[in-house]
Nucleic acid binder design. Structure first.
Lengths: 159, 159
DNA sequence: GAGGTAACTTCATATTTAGAAGTAAGTCAA
DNA sequence: TTGACTTACTTCTAAATATGAAGTTACCTC
């Protein structure tokens, strides 16, 4: 199975990964959450090749994660912005940042997050909205839907 | 710049992405958080090639995200488990799942999360630990460290 | 001793990526 | 009014990476 086929799976993680789960797409998203919008900025700040950047931007536009807008008619100039769908990826990028800071950072934190609501530097964390407690891996038990469970049982029995 | 070079960047997101930011690594992590530990299970449930699976597992072991342990001496059999570092990736996978459910799921939720603490089905979300409020993209302002900011200004001026 | 299983490895082919170079439509400065 | 510069790309080729099929090792079970 190729990476592209992940998008047709039942699992929503697989679908999400097919769309935004590659290295350079993450780097583009990082730039967007840092406020950048232009092709050349993405190019210079990520270090990716222009060919790939072009491909990734097209894919993200086609899927509705970002949109392409003219900010000047003459000369014709365009920029890319996150849509609501794209802004929804903030927790993913932040979770990745927190993990990188904790396990790969060597004590330094290149980017801090200021919570506009309370004005403080914040290290956002996953919390259960039902009881308000913070959640980590050992606090959670996955429960598969019947359909999905059957699908996976079938996969187990494959050669 | 190649994908491998991301690991030597200052940005901790880039470093995290270099380590776990590819499609198949995400699929392996999904399986691990669903409780699977064996090579053949990963193979069947993810649909990836055995060659790649082998490479990815080696990389994750080498970096300390997972560990390889014998569960039988004769015949020699091994399984893979998440380390503390690996379990720390739970928020990333969950954030990805929430986003997939919201934007790509078509109304179905193949996996639900039960919070062991309160016993309820939970949709964990990012919260500011300083004030307890939920956080999303528009609530957050990034603040770059001086060193990192300079590095990025320099990148802007590159040809 | 035939068949099966877990956990891989090897190999040939196919696809994707990286890096360099090139292009179009304009602006700006002398 | 020409030549340099900018943004936002596209094209090209070589190199790296992924895929799928087949093979391997070391056992176990019937």
């Amino acid at each position: 199975m190729s990476r592209a086929d992940l998008s047709s799976q039942t699992c929503t993680i697989a679908r999400a990964v097919a769309l935004v789960g590659d290295e350079w797409t993450f780097m583009i998203l990082r730039e967007m959450f840092l406020g950048h919008r232009r092709f050349d900025d993405f190019l210079r700040q990520t270090g990716m090749s222009s060919h790939l950047l072009s491909q990734r931007l097209k894919k993200l536009v086609a899927e509705g994660v970002i949109c392409r807008e003219a900010y000047s008619e003459r000369p014709p100039r365009h920029e890319y912005r996150l849509t609501a769908m794209g802004r929804g990826l903030w927790p993913v990028v932040i979770a990745m940042k927190q993990w990188g800071d904790r396990w790969l950072g060597g004590g330094e934190t290149p980017v801090e997050i200021v919570h506009k609501g309370c004005g403080r530097v914040s290290q956002p964390r996953m919390t259960c909205p039902e009881c308000g407690e913070p959640m980590a891996a050992h606090d959670a038990a996955p429960r598969l839907s019947e359909t999905f469970d059957k699908e996976r049982q079938a996969a187990r029995r494959q050669p």
